[in-house]
């Protein structure tokens, strides 16, 4: 990992709408290299006058998909980069990417489990890369995802998560909808708290490696919550994000 990290010209090969505010963008990379689940790419846009804007986006795809990466991006109001990606970018367009970047908030199938993944909103993206890698290598280490979204329509990867859990009883997914729950909703309907964490922890146990990604308040509450339940702090890795990721 000591070679210089170069910007490369990536070509958009697919754009897939995940929710009203979130889309997945797949890019073909001329110098693709395998990433670790949890890593990100920096994306840079350059305007005709030379103005540049740069943001970091987590990789959603699993490393065994060679040649391409998928970044799942939430549209941030007034976010100059995310708005461009959502409103202007079409298949065939080119942007500058550099990566993969990051060595702290990462998981490899060979690292093993059990895994406790806790996400708020688009914080699920790097965790989805872990879930997809786990599925891709056929790993059956116990894994649980606790996923907080505002409303049902805002839940990213709903169908894929349902399909993965249906095919693999060792993967459990717990949704909580903090804003609005549809009729007949059987998941949680509040912000992540200690009681909720205590209910899902038996699915993986206190040996779990914990990855938490989301808004700062959620990350801090969840990290404190799992430590209070007896998971050593050294097993807990967090990644906070904010509108600077716009």
């Amino acid at each position: 990992m000591t070679e210089p990290l170069r910007w490369q010209i990536a070509t958009v090969t697919d754009i897939h709408s995940e929710t009203p505010n979130v889309s997945s963008f797949t890019f073909a990379l001329p110098d693709w290299m395998p990433h670790l689940a949890g890593q990100h790419y920096d994306l840079r846009l350059t305007a005709a006058d030379g103005y540049q804007a740069q943001r970091s986006y987590s990789i959603a795809s699993e490393p065994m998909r060679t040649g391409v990466i998928t970044l799942t991006v939430e549209r941030i109001p007034d976010g100059e980069v995310s708005a461009y990606l959502h409103d202007v970018l079409v298949v065939g367009d080119r942007v500058e990417l550099r990566g993969p970047i990051g060595g702290y908030f990462v998981w490899k199938a060979t690292t093993g489990g059990p895994l406790l993944l806790i996400a708020g909103g688009s914080g699920v993206v790097p965790l989805m890369s872990m879930i997809r890698e786990r599925a891709g290598v056929g790993s059956r280490v116990p894994a649980a995802l606790l996923f907080s979204s505002r409303k049902r329509e805002d839940v990213i990867y709903w169908d894929e998560l349902a399909a993965l859990t249906a095919a693999d009883p060792s993967l459990r997914v717990f949704h909580t909808l903090t804003r609005e729950q549809p009729p007949g909703w059987t998941g949680y309907g509040r912000r992540i708290d200690g009681e909720m964490l205590a209910e899902i922890l038996p699915a993986v146990g206190t040996d779990a490696r914990v990855f938490i990604c989301g808004p700062t308040l959620l990350v801090e509450a969840a990290a404190q919550g799992v430590v209070d339940l007896g998971i050593p702090a050294a097993q807990v890795r967090t990644e906070r994000f904010g509108p600077t990721g716009a």
């Binding site: 740069q54 700062t216 906070r240 904010g242 990721g245």
Partner: peptide, 21 residues
């Protein structure tokens, strides 16, 4: 509160590219 806290605090992961550079 989320937005304000979120806009102020990130992890160094957010500047990993710059640090690597």
């Amino acid at each position: 509160a989320d937005d304000m806290a979120g806009s102020l605090t990130l992890d160094a992961n957010a500047v990993a590219g710059r640090m690597r550079e």
